[in-house]
Amino acid sequence: MSPVDLLYTAVAVALFGLGLGALALSARPLKKLLGANVMGTGVFSLLIVTARGPDGATDPVPHALVITGIVVTVAATGLGLALIRRTRSASKD
């Protein structure tokens, strides 16, 4: 593994860990939701490093996975925000 690959991998794993920490430990819903997004970014970064082949050729499969993953994350974030808004409007009643 080249030093650049190693750096990217380390950053990807760190992002995943930081996001997981925020999702599990934060008390605030919005922070949890952002934590899940950071976690996802970590996984996607790891997949993108994986796509880089040893001879500079790129493997298209991880890119397809990342695009699908981003779509899923957008949907999940939208649902999360809608639910957060509902709990807030409900607690005002």
Binding site: F16, V43, G80
Partner: peptide, 29 residues
């Protein structure tokens, strides 16, 4: 409101679980 809060917690658990699983898939790939 109680159900909305339960739903939100359920969503977070689901997301965390899915992303842990996805990380496993990425490392297998």
């Amino acid at each position: 409101a109680a159900a909305a809060r339960a739903a939100l917690r359920y969503l977070f658990v689901g997301l965390g679980g899915s992303l842990l699983y996805l990380m496993a898939v990425a490392s297998i790939y």
